[in-house]
Design a protein around this nucleic acid. Structure first.
Lengths: 253, 253
DNA sequence: TCGATCAAGTTGTAGGACAACTATTGACTT
DNA sequence: AAGTCAATAGTTGTCCTACAACTTGATCGA
């Protein structure tokens, strides 16, 4: 095998300590290569052996990365044959089961994300919030009501409650401005998992402002975000205006 | 380490050729052990080394299985520490991203599944069906309209179109009776992946019969089922009556 | 009492080897 | 000439061993 080094492969973990394990980094880079159509749908990607050569890692690491991508529905690995790019239509994009901020998702879909805050305050937790966040009723939470925009059009209304616990007081102001996850990251808080419940809702009491949909039809994503150790940090009820956002789920065995 | 063989571990692949790879079999057995609460939520499961001993397989195989379970949100693997059972509330159960028949899911939730057929016929594909199933308009499809029941209560109405292609004529009758996936399995057809789109729908034209919900509020799961090689075999629009079925999604990084 | 250090345990990565499976080629038979 | 079968190279699946990187709790010392 010739050591044909790919021209523009970003090196692994050169800058800023390279978040996560080697396999994770390889997975993310391979995902990018797949999503940018470096290999056509249904076509075979290089063998594990070749990829190990390209990235200068062991076959074990490559396998771990490939298996992860298979679990996410991007690859189809066949024993004795090779790994193939899963072929759906052209849509695919980011599935719902991948945890990322709404803002990022909107941006990735090619729109300009925006946000307007109607309420940002600190108050005691309601009974429901206390139950979900595993805190006592009345314990302080950061409560927000926001409208989420894509290209200046409202796509969702979100009602969020963040458990304060040992959050520094000054950081609360941060939350009221940009992305919540951005503010989390600055504090070293990284939600790694969310449990979401989905409902269809018809109500005139959800949206506000002039962008409010007349139909009152929403897809409710009732989420609870967890830290690595299972501690819940944020409960958010996000009402997506039906039709303005495409929700996709990959289902695999 | 003592070779303390667990008393009731089903042996791997003793009967009927043992479907799938070793790692897949181990994954399924471990999943069962997790879902039956053999280990409490948040607690550590045995080390990879121990598990390898229990199942008489290599650590690599155990790792592959554990990684798969982590991707499904059942485990949380921490470098240098161990693998922990993910702790959400008690709900969890089967997430939406796991592909399985509605019937099985209902049964697993502790209800008695049922089904009534309103329409089962062979007809030409509509434009939309042709597009989704990647066949020509007018090509024959098996079209069905079914009501899906749990404990004799309607939980969903489903409109399905199965691509006939080289389906034997006699098997079409089978479809009209029990589970569609059961009929598929008998023919050696195994959908391994589905792409689902979610919508909130408010309409009085969906349900029928006396169990029809007065609200007309549904959660629409617009699905397309694929074979391993990416060939679409069934397009189904399933309207779940809002509130009668709990939809859960695990979201991970 | 508090902090640093150490040691044991666990997951992550490496490398080599072989088994199991797939797809293609080429020879052979009819 | 066409079809069948066997050999073969290429690829993923599993095993083994070893060590690196990380976590956790115990130990020791100031």
């Amino acid at each position: 095998m010739a050591i044909a080094k790919s021209p523009a492969l970003p090196s692994l973990a050169t800058t800023k300590g390279g978040r996560g394990s080697l396999a994770t980094q390889v997975r993310d880079q391979l995902r990018t290569r797949i999503l940018t159509h470096e290999w056509n749908e249904g076509k075979k990607i290089p063998s594990e052996f070749d990829l190990a050569g390209q990235y200068h890692v062991s076959r074990v690491t490559i396998r771990t990365a490939l298996k992860a991508l298979e679990a996410q529905g991007l690859l189809d690995i066949r024993h004795g044959s090779g790994a193939y790019v899963a072929n759906f239509g052209t849509s695919i994009r980011a599935g719902l089961q991948e945890l990322r901020s709404i803002t990022d998702t909107i941006r990735e879909m090619g729109f300009e994300p925006g946000m307007t805050h109607r309420v940002v305050k600190r108050r005691g937790a309601t009974a429901d919030e206390a139950l979900r966040l595993q805190i006592a009723e009345g314990e302080p939470v950061l409560y927000m009501e926001r409208a989420i925009l894509a290209d200046d059009e409202v796509v969702a209304y979100s009602y969020d409650a963040v458990a304060i616990r040992d959050l520094p007081e000054k950081s609360i102001g941060e939350m009221g401005k940009g992305s919540v996850f951005g503010a989390f990251a600055k504090l070293g808080i990284f939600p790694v998992r969310a449990l979401a419940e989905i409902h269809a809702i018809s109500s005139m009491d959800i949206g506000w402002g002039k962008g409010r949909p007349k139909s009152g039809l929403y897809l409710l994503l009732k989420q609870l975000h967890f830290l690595r150790d299972g501690v819940p940090v944020m409960a958010s009820d996000t009402y997506f205006v039906e039709g303005r956002f495409q929700f996709i789920i990959h289902r695999t065995l």
